[in-house]
Amino acid sequence: MENVKQNNSRNALLFIIGLGIIIGVIVPIVPQLVWAVSHRWAFPDLLPEAMSGRAWKYIANPNSKVLSATLNSLVIAICVTVISILVGVPAGKALGMYKFKAKGAIELIILSPSIIPPLAVTMGMQVIFIRMGLSDTIFGVILVHLIPTIPYMTVSMAGVFANYDPAYEEQARSLGAGTVKTFFLITLPTIFPGIVTGAMFAFLISWGQYILTIIIGGGRVITLPLLLFSFASSGDFTLTSALSIIFLLPSIIILVITSKYLSGQSSGMGGFGNI
């Protein structure tokens, strides 16, 4: 009986949290969905006067730059994610598992971009980037996006590695697994959820980046947030809403993957564990 009671109060709590998420996250999206396919929708009408596929036609039109901007955003976000993993995993391993000289100072250097507002850093960086010819290029934008993502990835991996016991690898070796098998069967599965979490957030940080892109890209490198911003300020709600939906897609996909994939049990799933 006690158990049933406990379950009931637990369910009630889950229901309230779920309701909060729906009200806070999903409800605001509903008008956008409607806007995206409406012709005119004036206050105080509950539904739009007429429906229209105008926004989607515009998006599909190659001259509209929406597709190329989406592609830009994707390429940049993927490159940023991959580089963040390549830098963040070894850096996180070093910070999480080893003791070395000046560790505190190195930690500070890695974390400093996320302590100082990126805008302040970028203003100075722009001058250097212009001199190096990196300004107005996709490559430059990728580099500048790494400023917020690498600290994130590193800290997240440091948490994973702080909870990681290298004796698991020894155990696998002594059971007959060579170094390659040990890496793929033992090390990787243990730290993989941590990498996935860090990578997805790195992707989202880059995907949603506006200020860093416009400063370093100088308006030449057009990404989705830049287009979205210009449509929003022009007051075209239909187009803005349609673009927002595209903009939202990765977040939704990532949300689904995280909830499905990361609910498993793993010792490496420390996230921001004790570093």
Partner: peptide, 20 residues
């Protein structure tokens, strides 16, 4: 001789069962 080829198995104090 590498550990994987020694046919010597170590059992650790904290068992180290692979969690997944």
């Amino acid at each position: 001789i590498k550990p994987e080829n020694r046919e010597v198995v170590m059992v650790y104090q904290n068992y180290l069962l692979f969690p997944y």
